[in-house]
Nucleic acid binder design. Sequence first.
DNA 1: GCCGTTTTCGGCCCGACTGTTTTCAGTCG
Length: 569
Amino acid sequence: MLNLTIAETFRNISRLLEIRQDNPFRIRAYERAAQAIEGLNEDIEIMAGKGTLREIPGIGKDLERKIKEFIETGKIRAYEELKKSFPDGLLELLRIPSVGPKTAKLLYDELQIHNVAGLESAIAKGKLKGIFGIKEKTIKNIASGIRLLKAGKERMPLSVAWQAAESFLRPLQGLPGLKKISCAGSLRRQKETIRDIDILVATGTPQRIIRHFTRLPQVKEIIASGSTKSSVRTADGIQVDCRAVVEKSFGAALLYFTGSKNFNIKLRQIAIQKGLKINEYGVFRGNAFVAGRTEAEIFKLLGMEYIEPELREDTGEIALAQKGTLPKLITQNDLRGDLHTHSSWSDGNNTIQEMAFAAAKLGYSYIAITDHSQGLKIANGLSVKDLLKKRKEIEKVNNALRRCRVLYGTEVDIDSQGRLDYSNETLKEFDIVIAAIHSGFRQSKEKLTRRILKACDNKYVNIISHPTGRLWGTRDAYEIDFDAIVAGARETNTALEVNSYPLRLDLNDLHCRRAKEEGVKLVINTDSHATEHLAAARFGIAVARRGWLTAKDVLNTLPLDDLLKAIKK
DNA sequence: GCCGTTTTCGGCCCGACTGTTTTCAGTCG
Protein backbone atom coordinates (compact mmCIF):
# COMPACT_ATOMS: atom_id res chain seq x y z
CA MET A 1 0.00 0.00 0.00
CA LEU A 2 1.50 3.29 -1.10
CA ASN A 3 -0.61 5.65 1.02
CA LEU A 4 1.99 6.35 3.68
CA THR A 5 4.85 6.60 1.19
CA ILE A 6 3.01 9.15 -0.89
CA ALA A 7 1.92 11.10 2.19
CA GLU A 8 5.52 11.20 3.35
CA THR A 9 6.68 12.41 -0.04
CA PHE A 10 4.16 15.25 -0.03
CA ARG A 11 5.17 16.13 3.50
CA ASN A 12 8.81 16.30 2.41
CA ILE A 13 7.89 18.52 -0.51
CA SER A 14 6.03 20.77 1.90
CA ARG A 15 9.06 21.00 4.16
CA LEU A 16 11.50 21.72 1.39
CA LEU A 17 9.21 24.42 0.04
CA GLU A 18 9.06 25.83 3.53
CA ILE A 19 12.83 26.06 3.76
CA ARG A 20 12.83 27.73 0.38
CA GLN A 21 10.18 30.14 1.72
CA ASP A 22 7.82 29.35 -1.09
CA ASN A 23 4.18 30.48 -1.14
CA PRO A 24 2.91 29.56 2.34
CA PHE A 25 -0.42 28.39 0.96
CA ARG A 26 1.26 26.08 -1.44
CA ILE A 27 3.27 24.69 1.46
CA ARG A 28 0.11 24.09 3.40
CA ALA A 29 -1.60 22.49 0.44
CA TYR A 30 1.07 19.77 0.38
CA GLU A 31 0.90 19.30 4.14
CA ARG A 32 -2.89 19.08 4.02
CA ALA A 33 -2.74 16.58 1.22
CA ALA A 34 -0.24 14.49 3.18
CA GLN A 35 -2.54 14.40 6.17
CA ALA A 36 -5.57 13.62 4.08
CA ILE A 37 -3.81 10.69 2.45
CA GLU A 38 -2.66 9.34 5.80
CA GLY A 39 -6.24 9.36 6.96
CA LEU A 40 -7.60 7.49 3.96
CA ASN A 41 -9.41 4.25 4.55
CA GLU A 42 -8.79 3.05 1.07
CA ASP A 43 -5.75 1.99 -0.89
CA ILE A 44 -4.69 5.02 -2.89
CA GLU A 45 -3.71 2.83 -5.84
CA ILE A 46 -7.23 1.46 -6.01
CA MET A 47 -8.63 4.98 -5.83
CA ALA A 48 -6.36 6.04 -8.65
CA GLY A 49 -7.67 3.11 -10.67
CA LYS A 50 -11.24 4.13 -10.00
CA GLY A 51 -10.49 7.76 -10.76
CA THR A 52 -11.65 8.97 -7.36
CA LEU A 53 -8.47 10.71 -6.20
CA ARG A 54 -10.03 14.14 -6.66
CA GLU A 55 -12.63 13.26 -4.04
CA ILE A 56 -9.92 13.37 -1.40
CA PRO A 57 -10.10 16.79 0.24
CA GLY A 58 -7.03 18.76 -0.71
CA ILE A 59 -6.24 16.77 -3.83
CA GLY A 60 -6.72 18.81 -6.98
CA LYS A 61 -5.61 18.44 -10.53
CA ASP A 62 -1.90 18.80 -9.92
CA LEU A 63 -1.61 16.51 -6.91
CA GLU A 64 -3.76 13.92 -8.63
CA ARG A 65 -1.26 13.92 -11.47
CA LYS A 66 1.64 13.62 -9.04
CA ILE A 67 0.02 10.70 -7.23
CA LYS A 68 -0.54 8.90 -10.51
CA GLU A 69 3.03 9.64 -11.51
CA PHE A 70 4.25 8.08 -8.28
CA ILE A 71 2.11 4.98 -8.71
CA GLU A 72 3.32 4.49 -12.27
CA THR A 73 7.00 5.38 -11.94
CA GLY A 74 7.73 5.19 -8.22
CA LYS A 75 8.88 8.79 -8.36
CA ILE A 76 7.65 12.33 -8.65
CA ARG A 77 9.84 14.28 -11.01
CA ALA A 78 9.13 17.64 -9.41
CA TYR A 79 10.17 16.22 -6.04
CA GLU A 80 13.39 14.79 -7.44
CA GLU A 81 14.16 18.20 -8.94
CA LEU A 82 13.36 19.96 -5.70
CA LYS A 83 15.60 17.64 -3.74
CA LYS A 84 18.50 18.49 -6.01
CA SER A 85 18.55 22.05 -4.77
CA PHE A 86 19.11 20.90 -1.19
CA PRO A 87 21.77 18.69 0.35
CA ASP A 88 20.74 15.23 1.52
CA GLY A 89 19.89 15.18 5.17
CA LEU A 90 18.61 18.73 5.46
CA LEU A 91 15.12 17.44 6.23
CA GLU A 92 16.62 15.63 9.18
CA LEU A 93 17.24 19.00 10.84
CA LEU A 94 13.53 19.74 10.85
CA ARG A 95 12.92 16.73 13.03
CA ILE A 96 14.77 18.42 15.87
CA PRO A 97 12.29 20.06 18.25
CA SER A 98 12.80 23.84 18.18
CA VAL A 99 14.40 23.72 14.75
CA GLY A 100 11.97 24.81 12.07
CA PRO A 101 12.46 25.74 8.43
CA LYS A 102 13.86 29.19 9.13
CA THR A 103 16.48 27.93 11.52
CA ALA A 104 17.38 25.06 9.22
CA LYS A 105 17.87 27.46 6.34
CA LEU A 106 19.87 29.80 8.51
CA LEU A 107 22.14 27.00 9.67
CA TYR A 108 22.64 25.83 6.13
CA ASP A 109 23.22 29.26 4.63
CA GLU A 110 25.61 30.44 7.33
CA LEU A 111 27.47 27.26 8.28
CA GLN A 112 26.58 24.75 5.55
CA ILE A 113 25.13 22.51 8.23
CA HIS A 114 22.91 19.92 6.58
CA ASN A 115 22.44 17.10 9.05
CA VAL A 116 22.17 16.43 12.75
CA ALA A 117 25.74 15.22 13.09
CA GLY A 118 27.03 18.41 11.49
CA LEU A 119 24.89 20.50 13.79
CA GLU A 120 26.16 18.67 16.85
CA SER A 121 29.76 19.23 15.94
CA ALA A 122 29.09 22.89 15.12
CA ILE A 123 27.57 23.33 18.57
CA ALA A 124 30.50 21.57 20.20
CA LYS A 125 32.93 23.86 18.39
CA GLY A 126 30.98 26.95 19.39
CA LYS A 127 30.31 27.86 15.78
CA LEU A 128 26.70 28.86 16.33
CA LYS A 129 27.67 31.84 18.42
CA GLY A 130 27.63 35.04 16.51
CA ILE A 131 25.02 34.02 13.97
CA PHE A 132 22.42 36.76 13.82
CA GLY A 133 19.37 35.87 15.85
CA ILE A 134 20.97 32.94 17.66
CA LYS A 135 22.16 33.34 21.21
CA GLU A 136 22.93 31.13 24.20
CA LYS A 137 19.36 30.13 24.90
CA THR A 138 18.62 29.07 21.35
CA ILE A 139 21.79 27.01 21.20
CA LYS A 140 20.82 25.30 24.42
CA ASN A 141 17.35 24.56 23.08
CA ILE A 142 18.74 23.09 19.89
CA ALA A 143 21.16 20.93 21.86
CA SER A 144 18.40 19.56 24.05
CA GLY A 145 16.24 19.08 20.95
CA ILE A 146 18.95 16.87 19.49
CA ARG A 147 19.10 14.85 22.68
CA LEU A 148 15.34 14.34 22.52
CA LEU A 149 15.47 13.32 18.90
CA LYS A 150 18.17 10.78 19.67
CA ALA A 151 16.29 9.40 22.65
CA GLY A 152 13.82 8.42 19.94
CA LYS A 153 10.64 8.94 21.91
CA GLU A 154 8.36 8.32 19.03
CA ARG A 155 4.72 7.58 19.51
CA MET A 156 3.26 5.50 22.33
CA PRO A 157 0.34 3.10 22.17
CA LEU A 158 -3.04 4.50 23.19
CA SER A 159 -3.12 2.41 26.36
CA VAL A 160 0.16 3.88 27.61
CA ALA A 161 -1.03 7.38 26.76
CA TRP A 162 -4.23 6.88 28.75
CA GLN A 163 -2.27 5.80 31.79
CA ALA A 164 -0.04 8.85 31.54
CA ALA A 165 -3.00 11.15 30.98
CA GLU A 166 -4.85 9.79 33.98
CA SER A 167 -1.83 10.43 36.18
CA PHE A 168 -2.34 14.12 35.35
CA LEU A 169 -6.12 14.25 35.26
CA ARG A 170 -6.62 12.61 38.63
CA PRO A 171 -4.60 15.02 40.81
CA LEU A 172 -5.98 18.05 38.97
CA GLN A 173 -9.60 17.00 39.34
CA GLY A 174 -11.19 18.62 42.34
CA LEU A 175 -8.66 21.41 42.67
CA PRO A 176 -10.34 24.55 43.94
CA GLY A 177 -11.23 26.83 41.06
CA LEU A 178 -11.28 24.02 38.49
CA LYS A 179 -14.63 23.91 36.69
CA LYS A 180 -14.06 21.33 33.97
CA ILE A 181 -11.24 19.14 32.76
CA SER A 182 -10.79 16.89 29.76
CA CYS A 183 -8.10 15.35 27.69
CA ALA A 184 -8.03 16.53 24.10
CA GLY A 185 -5.89 15.93 21.03
CA SER A 186 -5.29 12.58 19.40
CA LEU A 187 -5.83 10.91 22.75
CA ARG A 188 -9.45 12.04 22.79
CA ARG A 189 -9.77 11.00 19.17
CA GLN A 190 -8.42 7.64 20.41
CA LYS A 191 -5.81 7.27 17.75
CA GLU A 192 -3.90 4.04 17.84
CA THR A 193 -0.67 5.76 18.76
CA ILE A 194 -0.16 9.09 20.49
CA ARG A 195 2.69 11.54 20.34
CA ASP A 196 1.87 13.84 23.24
CA ILE A 197 -0.95 14.40 25.67
CA ASP A 198 -3.24 17.42 25.72
CA ILE A 199 -5.20 18.44 28.76
CA LEU A 200 -7.75 21.22 28.81
CA VAL A 201 -9.18 22.88 31.90
CA ALA A 202 -11.88 25.45 32.46
CA THR A 203 -11.06 27.76 35.32
CA GLY A 204 -11.25 31.35 36.49
CA THR A 205 -7.80 31.04 38.02
CA PRO A 206 -5.58 29.69 35.25
CA GLN A 207 -2.25 30.56 36.86
CA ARG A 208 -3.04 28.52 39.91
CA ILE A 209 -4.04 25.44 37.94
CA ILE A 210 -1.06 25.74 35.62
CA ARG A 211 1.26 26.10 38.58
CA HIS A 212 -0.20 22.98 40.13
CA PHE A 213 0.17 21.15 36.82
CA THR A 214 3.84 22.01 36.42
CA ARG A 215 4.58 20.96 39.98
CA LEU A 216 3.13 17.46 39.82
CA PRO A 217 5.68 14.91 40.98
CA GLN A 218 5.90 13.07 37.65
CA VAL A 219 6.99 16.27 35.88
CA LYS A 220 10.67 16.18 35.17
CA GLU A 221 11.08 19.19 32.94
CA ILE A 222 9.06 22.30 32.15
CA ILE A 223 9.28 23.02 28.45
CA ALA A 224 7.13 26.14 28.47
CA SER A 225 4.92 27.80 30.98
CA GLY A 226 2.78 30.86 30.36
CA SER A 227 -0.30 32.27 31.99
CA THR A 228 -2.77 30.00 30.20
CA LYS A 229 -0.65 27.30 28.63
CA SER A 230 2.15 25.06 29.71
CA SER A 231 4.10 22.10 28.40
CA VAL A 232 6.02 19.65 30.52
CA ARG A 233 7.86 16.41 30.06
CA THR A 234 7.55 13.45 32.40
CA ALA A 235 10.35 11.21 33.61
CA ASP A 236 9.18 8.74 30.94
CA GLY A 237 9.83 11.36 28.28
CA ILE A 238 6.16 11.98 27.55
CA GLN A 239 5.21 15.55 26.67
CA VAL A 240 2.02 16.81 28.30
CA ASP A 241 0.43 20.13 27.35
CA CYS A 242 -2.06 21.89 29.58
CA ARG A 243 -4.24 24.72 28.44
CA ALA A 244 -6.58 26.79 30.58
CA VAL A 245 -9.60 28.76 29.38
CA VAL A 246 -12.65 30.30 31.05
CA GLU A 247 -15.72 28.11 31.31
CA LYS A 248 -17.55 30.03 28.62
CA SER A 249 -14.87 28.99 26.11
CA PHE A 250 -14.49 25.38 27.18
CA GLY A 251 -16.42 23.87 24.27
CA ALA A 252 -14.62 25.97 21.68
CA ALA A 253 -11.26 25.15 23.22
CA LEU A 254 -12.09 21.46 23.46
CA LEU A 255 -13.09 21.45 19.82
CA TYR A 256 -9.93 23.23 18.86
CA PHE A 257 -7.55 21.09 20.93
CA THR A 258 -9.17 17.84 19.94
CA GLY A 259 -8.51 18.44 16.27
CA SER A 260 -7.65 16.97 13.93
CA LYS A 261 -6.01 19.91 12.34
CA ASN A 262 -7.64 19.36 8.97
CA PHE A 263 -10.98 18.92 10.67
CA ASN A 264 -10.58 22.28 12.43
CA ILE A 265 -9.60 24.05 9.26
CA LYS A 266 -12.65 22.67 7.47
CA LEU A 267 -14.91 23.72 10.33
CA ARG A 268 -13.48 27.22 10.37
CA GLN A 269 -13.99 27.53 6.67
CA ILE A 270 -17.63 26.54 7.07
CA ALA A 271 -17.93 29.12 9.83
CA ILE A 272 -16.50 31.83 7.59
CA GLN A 273 -19.10 31.02 4.94
CA LYS A 274 -21.74 31.66 7.57
CA GLY A 275 -20.16 34.97 8.56
CA LEU A 276 -18.71 33.48 11.73
CA LYS A 277 -15.23 33.15 13.14
CA ILE A 278 -14.09 30.23 15.30
CA ASN A 279 -11.12 30.29 17.58
CA GLU A 280 -10.40 28.51 20.85
CA TYR A 281 -12.39 31.09 22.79
CA GLY A 282 -15.63 30.72 20.98
CA VAL A 283 -17.59 31.39 17.86
CA PHE A 284 -17.91 35.07 17.01
CA ARG A 285 -20.03 37.15 14.69
CA GLY A 286 -17.96 40.25 14.36
CA ASN A 287 -16.83 40.81 17.90
CA ALA A 288 -19.93 39.30 19.43
CA PHE A 289 -19.56 35.93 21.17
CA VAL A 290 -22.30 33.63 19.90
CA ALA A 291 -21.30 30.16 21.14
CA GLY A 292 -18.50 28.27 22.82
CA ARG A 293 -19.59 26.79 26.13
CA THR A 294 -20.04 23.31 24.71
CA GLU A 295 -19.00 21.56 21.53
CA ALA A 296 -22.61 20.58 20.93
CA GLU A 297 -23.80 24.19 20.66
CA ILE A 298 -21.04 24.98 18.18
CA PHE A 299 -21.92 22.07 15.91
CA LYS A 300 -25.54 23.10 16.09
CA LEU A 301 -24.72 26.67 15.19
CA LEU A 302 -22.75 25.45 12.19
CA GLY A 303 -25.78 23.49 11.05
CA MET A 304 -24.51 20.00 11.67
CA GLU A 305 -24.88 17.00 13.94
CA TYR A 306 -22.51 16.50 16.84
CA ILE A 307 -19.43 14.73 15.50
CA GLU A 308 -17.79 12.23 17.85
CA PRO A 309 -14.07 12.91 18.41
CA GLU A 310 -13.09 9.58 16.85
CA LEU A 311 -14.59 10.68 13.54
CA ARG A 312 -12.92 14.07 13.35
CA GLU A 313 -10.38 13.37 10.63
CA ASP A 314 -11.94 15.19 7.70
CA THR A 315 -12.57 11.94 5.86
CA GLY A 316 -16.16 12.55 4.93
CA GLU A 317 -17.74 12.92 8.36
CA ILE A 318 -18.42 16.65 8.03
CA ALA A 319 -20.60 16.24 4.97
CA LEU A 320 -22.58 13.48 6.70
CA ALA A 321 -22.98 15.64 9.80
CA GLN A 322 -24.40 18.41 7.66
CA LYS A 323 -26.91 15.95 6.23
CA GLY A 324 -27.57 14.47 9.67
CA THR A 325 -26.61 10.96 8.61
CA LEU A 326 -23.58 10.14 10.74
CA PRO A 327 -23.32 6.56 11.99
CA LYS A 328 -24.25 6.12 15.64
CA LEU A 329 -20.96 4.80 16.96
CA ILE A 330 -20.77 1.73 19.13
CA THR A 331 -20.09 2.28 22.84
CA GLN A 332 -18.70 0.01 25.48
CA ASN A 333 -22.19 -0.37 26.94
CA ASP A 334 -23.30 -2.06 23.74
CA LEU A 335 -21.04 -5.05 24.35
CA ARG A 336 -22.85 -8.04 25.80
CA GLY A 337 -19.95 -10.41 25.98
CA ASP A 338 -16.41 -11.35 25.13
CA LEU A 339 -15.83 -14.12 22.63
CA HIS A 340 -12.08 -14.62 22.93
CA THR A 341 -10.58 -15.39 26.33
CA HIS A 342 -8.22 -17.94 27.81
CA SER A 343 -8.37 -19.86 31.06
CA SER A 344 -5.84 -21.80 33.07
CA TRP A 345 -6.71 -24.81 30.91
CA SER A 346 -4.28 -23.38 28.36
CA ASP A 347 -2.12 -20.31 28.98
CA GLY A 348 -4.46 -18.08 31.00
CA ASN A 349 -3.96 -17.10 34.62
CA ASN A 350 -7.49 -17.69 35.88
CA THR A 351 -9.95 -20.55 36.10
CA ILE A 352 -13.05 -20.67 33.98
CA GLN A 353 -15.12 -19.78 37.00
CA GLU A 354 -12.98 -16.75 37.78
CA MET A 355 -13.19 -15.54 34.20
CA ALA A 356 -16.96 -16.04 34.19
CA PHE A 357 -17.45 -14.13 37.42
CA ALA A 358 -15.28 -11.28 36.14
CA ALA A 359 -17.35 -11.14 32.95
CA ALA A 360 -20.58 -11.12 34.94
CA LYS A 361 -19.23 -8.29 37.03
CA LEU A 362 -18.70 -6.27 33.86
CA GLY A 363 -22.36 -6.81 33.08
CA TYR A 364 -21.72 -9.30 30.27
CA SER A 365 -24.30 -11.94 29.58
CA TYR A 366 -21.84 -14.33 27.96
CA ILE A 367 -18.14 -15.13 27.75
CA ALA A 368 -16.48 -17.63 25.46
CA ILE A 369 -13.52 -19.50 26.91
CA THR A 370 -11.44 -20.12 23.82
CA ASP A 371 -8.31 -21.91 24.92
CA HIS A 372 -5.58 -22.81 22.48
CA SER A 373 -5.69 -26.02 20.46
CA GLN A 374 -3.50 -29.10 20.88
CA GLY A 375 -0.73 -28.21 18.45
CA LEU A 376 0.17 -24.99 20.18
CA LYS A 377 2.35 -26.64 22.79
CA ILE A 378 3.99 -23.41 23.88
CA ALA A 379 0.60 -22.13 25.02
CA ASN A 380 -0.36 -25.44 26.62
CA GLY A 381 -2.92 -26.22 23.94
CA LEU A 382 -5.69 -28.64 24.86
CA SER A 383 -5.76 -32.25 23.69
CA VAL A 384 -9.09 -33.75 22.64
CA LYS A 385 -9.14 -35.64 25.93
CA ASP A 386 -8.65 -32.38 27.89
CA LEU A 387 -11.55 -30.87 25.98
CA LEU A 388 -14.02 -33.33 27.42
CA LYS A 389 -12.97 -32.42 30.96
CA LYS A 390 -13.02 -28.73 30.15
CA ARG A 391 -16.51 -29.00 28.78
CA LYS A 392 -17.73 -30.66 31.97
CA GLU A 393 -16.22 -27.87 34.01
CA ILE A 394 -18.00 -25.29 31.88
CA GLU A 395 -21.29 -27.07 32.47
CA LYS A 396 -20.63 -26.95 36.18
CA VAL A 397 -19.91 -23.21 36.11
CA ASN A 398 -22.99 -22.59 34.00
CA ASN A 399 -25.13 -24.41 36.51
CA ALA A 400 -23.79 -22.25 39.30
CA LEU A 401 -23.79 -18.92 37.48
CA ARG A 402 -27.02 -17.84 35.86
CA ARG A 403 -26.26 -14.24 34.93
CA CYS A 404 -23.46 -14.94 32.52
CA ARG A 405 -23.38 -17.93 30.21
CA VAL A 406 -20.00 -19.52 29.55
CA LEU A 407 -19.58 -20.62 25.95
CA TYR A 408 -17.47 -23.66 25.13
CA GLY A 409 -14.96 -22.36 22.64
CA THR A 410 -11.51 -22.75 21.16
CA GLU A 411 -8.91 -20.67 19.43
CA VAL A 412 -7.93 -23.29 16.92
CA ASP A 413 -4.56 -22.94 15.27
CA ILE A 414 -4.33 -22.57 11.49
CA ASP A 415 -1.24 -24.53 10.47
CA SER A 416 1.27 -23.54 7.83
CA GLN A 417 -0.84 -25.21 5.13
CA GLY A 418 -4.10 -23.65 6.27
CA ARG A 419 -5.32 -26.82 8.03
CA LEU A 420 -7.02 -26.61 11.39
CA ASP A 421 -5.59 -28.17 14.51
CA TYR A 422 -8.78 -30.13 15.42
CA SER A 423 -10.87 -32.41 13.25
CA ASN A 424 -14.33 -31.34 12.14
CA GLU A 425 -15.70 -33.99 14.52
CA THR A 426 -14.17 -32.08 17.40
CA LEU A 427 -14.87 -28.61 16.05
CA LYS A 428 -18.57 -29.16 15.63
CA GLU A 429 -18.95 -29.72 19.37
CA PHE A 430 -17.94 -26.18 20.26
CA ASP A 431 -20.38 -23.34 20.81
CA ILE A 432 -17.93 -21.05 19.09
CA VAL A 433 -14.72 -21.49 17.13
CA ILE A 434 -12.08 -18.85 16.58
CA ALA A 435 -9.30 -19.59 14.12
CA ALA A 436 -5.94 -17.86 14.12
CA ILE A 437 -2.44 -18.05 12.76
CA HIS A 438 0.34 -18.48 15.31
CA SER A 439 3.28 -19.54 13.17
CA GLY A 440 4.75 -19.27 9.72
CA PHE A 441 4.45 -15.49 9.68
CA ARG A 442 7.17 -15.18 7.09
CA GLN A 443 5.28 -16.89 4.35
CA SER A 444 4.36 -14.93 1.26
CA LYS A 445 1.35 -12.68 1.24
CA GLU A 446 -0.44 -15.11 -1.08
CA LYS A 447 0.20 -18.09 1.13
CA LEU A 448 -0.83 -16.33 4.34
CA THR A 449 -3.98 -15.11 2.66
CA ARG A 450 -4.78 -18.60 1.37
CA ARG A 451 -4.36 -20.06 4.86
CA ILE A 452 -6.90 -17.65 6.29
CA LEU A 453 -9.31 -18.11 3.41
CA LYS A 454 -9.11 -21.86 3.88
CA ALA A 455 -10.02 -21.44 7.55
CA CYS A 456 -12.99 -19.27 6.54
CA ASP A 457 -14.18 -22.11 4.32
CA ASN A 458 -14.49 -24.48 7.27
CA LYS A 459 -18.13 -24.57 8.26
CA TYR A 460 -17.35 -24.64 11.98
CA VAL A 461 -15.06 -21.61 12.06
CA ASN A 462 -17.05 -18.58 13.23
CA ILE A 463 -14.38 -15.95 13.70
CA ILE A 464 -10.93 -15.15 12.35
CA SER A 465 -8.78 -13.69 15.07
CA HIS A 466 -5.92 -11.19 14.77
CA PRO A 467 -5.63 -11.61 11.00
CA THR A 468 -2.49 -9.53 10.47
CA GLY A 469 -0.51 -10.88 13.41
CA ARG A 470 0.93 -7.61 14.48
CA LEU A 471 2.35 -7.13 17.95
CA TRP A 472 3.16 -3.55 18.74
CA GLY A 473 6.89 -2.92 19.07
CA THR A 474 7.67 -6.62 18.62
CA ARG A 475 6.36 -7.78 15.32
CA ASP A 476 5.08 -5.92 12.31
CA ALA A 477 1.87 -6.97 10.69
CA TYR A 478 2.47 -9.68 8.15
CA GLU A 479 1.14 -8.91 4.74
CA ILE A 480 -2.22 -10.26 3.80
CA ASP A 481 -4.56 -9.42 0.98
CA PHE A 482 -7.17 -7.87 3.19
CA ASP A 483 -9.67 -7.29 0.42
CA ALA A 484 -9.53 -10.99 -0.46
CA ILE A 485 -10.08 -11.92 3.18
CA VAL A 486 -13.03 -9.56 3.44
CA ALA A 487 -14.52 -11.15 0.35
CA GLY A 488 -13.92 -14.65 1.73
CA ALA A 489 -15.38 -13.74 5.09
CA ARG A 490 -18.48 -12.33 3.47
CA GLU A 491 -19.06 -15.38 1.30
CA THR A 492 -18.68 -17.80 4.18
CA ASN A 493 -20.37 -15.73 6.89
CA THR A 494 -17.21 -15.64 8.97
CA ALA A 495 -16.75 -12.72 11.34
CA LEU A 496 -13.50 -10.81 11.67
CA GLU A 497 -12.16 -9.93 15.08
CA VAL A 498 -11.05 -6.61 16.45
CA ASN A 499 -8.57 -7.76 19.06
CA SER A 500 -8.56 -5.27 21.93
CA TYR A 501 -5.35 -6.45 23.47
CA PRO A 502 -3.46 -3.13 23.62
CA LEU A 503 -0.39 -4.40 21.83
CA ARG A 504 -2.34 -6.03 19.03
CA LEU A 505 -5.24 -3.80 18.00
CA ASP A 506 -5.63 -5.99 15.00
CA LEU A 507 -7.71 -5.25 12.97
CA ASN A 508 -7.16 -1.52 12.88
CA ASP A 509 -9.64 1.29 12.24
CA LEU A 510 -9.07 1.29 8.51
CA HIS A 511 -9.73 -2.45 8.30
CA CYS A 512 -12.95 -2.01 10.28
CA ARG A 513 -14.30 0.61 7.96
CA ARG A 514 -13.42 -1.49 4.96
CA ALA A 515 -15.02 -4.65 6.37
CA LYS A 516 -18.15 -2.74 7.29
CA GLU A 517 -18.42 -1.26 3.82
CA GLU A 518 -18.31 -4.76 2.39
CA GLY A 519 -20.94 -6.03 4.79
CA VAL A 520 -18.69 -8.27 6.87
CA LYS A 521 -19.57 -8.61 10.56
CA LEU A 522 -17.02 -7.89 13.24
CA VAL A 523 -16.55 -8.94 16.84
CA ILE A 524 -14.70 -7.02 19.52
CA ASN A 525 -12.74 -9.35 21.77
CA THR A 526 -10.03 -8.92 24.36
CA ASP A 527 -7.99 -12.12 24.00
CA SER A 528 -7.79 -11.96 27.80
CA HIS A 529 -5.33 -14.20 29.56
CA ALA A 530 -6.41 -12.96 33.01
CA THR A 531 -9.54 -11.46 34.54
CA GLU A 532 -8.10 -7.95 34.58
CA HIS A 533 -7.49 -8.07 30.81
CA LEU A 534 -11.24 -8.06 30.16
CA ALA A 535 -11.28 -4.31 30.73
CA ALA A 536 -9.17 -3.83 27.61
CA ALA A 537 -12.37 -3.97 25.58
CA ARG A 538 -12.30 -0.17 25.69
CA PHE A 539 -9.35 -0.18 23.29
CA GLY A 540 -11.14 -2.42 20.83
CA ILE A 541 -14.13 -0.13 21.12
CA ALA A 542 -11.83 2.79 20.36
CA VAL A 543 -10.64 1.11 17.16
CA ALA A 544 -14.20 0.25 16.19
CA ARG A 545 -15.37 3.81 16.73
CA ARG A 546 -12.55 5.18 14.63
CA GLY A 547 -13.59 2.61 12.06
CA TRP A 548 -17.12 4.09 11.98
CA LEU A 549 -18.70 0.93 13.43
CA THR A 550 -22.14 0.92 14.99
CA ALA A 551 -23.54 -1.68 17.38
CA LYS A 552 -25.21 -3.34 14.39
CA ASP A 553 -21.86 -4.05 12.79
CA VAL A 554 -20.58 -5.96 15.82
CA LEU A 555 -21.93 -9.42 16.64
CA ASN A 556 -21.16 -9.47 20.34
CA THR A 557 -23.62 -6.67 20.94
CA LEU A 558 -26.39 -9.21 20.27
CA PRO A 559 -28.28 -11.13 22.95
CA LEU A 560 -26.91 -14.67 23.28
CA ASP A 561 -29.58 -16.45 21.24
CA ASP A 562 -29.31 -14.00 18.38
CA LEU A 563 -25.55 -14.21 18.50
CA LEU A 564 -25.55 -17.99 18.21
CA LYS A 565 -27.94 -17.76 15.27
CA ALA A 566 -25.91 -15.05 13.59
CA ILE A 567 -22.63 -16.95 13.65
CA LYS A 568 -24.14 -20.16 12.20
CA LYS A 569 -22.93 -20.95 8.72
C1' DG B 1 -1.70 24.12 -4.77
C1' DC B 2 -6.74 24.00 -3.58
C1' DC B 3 -11.29 25.67 -3.95
C1' DG B 4 -16.22 27.68 -5.06
C1' DT B 5 -24.18 29.42 -1.57
C1' DT B 6 -18.54 35.64 -3.05
C1' DT B 7 -17.23 29.69 -8.50
C1' DT B 8 -11.99 30.13 -12.65
C1' DC B 9 -9.62 34.66 -9.42
C1' DG B 10 -8.28 35.76 -5.16
C1' DG B 11 -8.75 34.27 -1.22
C1' DC B 12 -6.70 30.60 1.99
C1' DC B 13 -7.65 29.00 10.44
C1' DC B 14 -5.94 31.05 14.47
C1' DG B 15 -3.42 31.99 18.67
C1' DA B 16 0.25 31.10 22.77
C1' DC B 17 4.95 31.04 24.18
C1' DT B 18 9.92 31.88 23.60
C1' DG B 19 13.89 34.31 22.46
C1' DT B 20 15.49 37.94 20.44
C1' DT B 21 14.31 41.96 19.67
C1' DT B 22 12.61 46.78 21.35
C1' DT B 23 7.96 45.41 17.98
C1' DC B 24 8.56 40.84 16.08
C1' DA B 25 9.87 36.37 13.99
C1' DG B 26 10.00 31.55 14.70
C1' DT B 27 8.01 27.40 16.36
C1' DC B 28 4.34 24.69 17.74
C1' DG B 29 -0.17 22.83 17.94
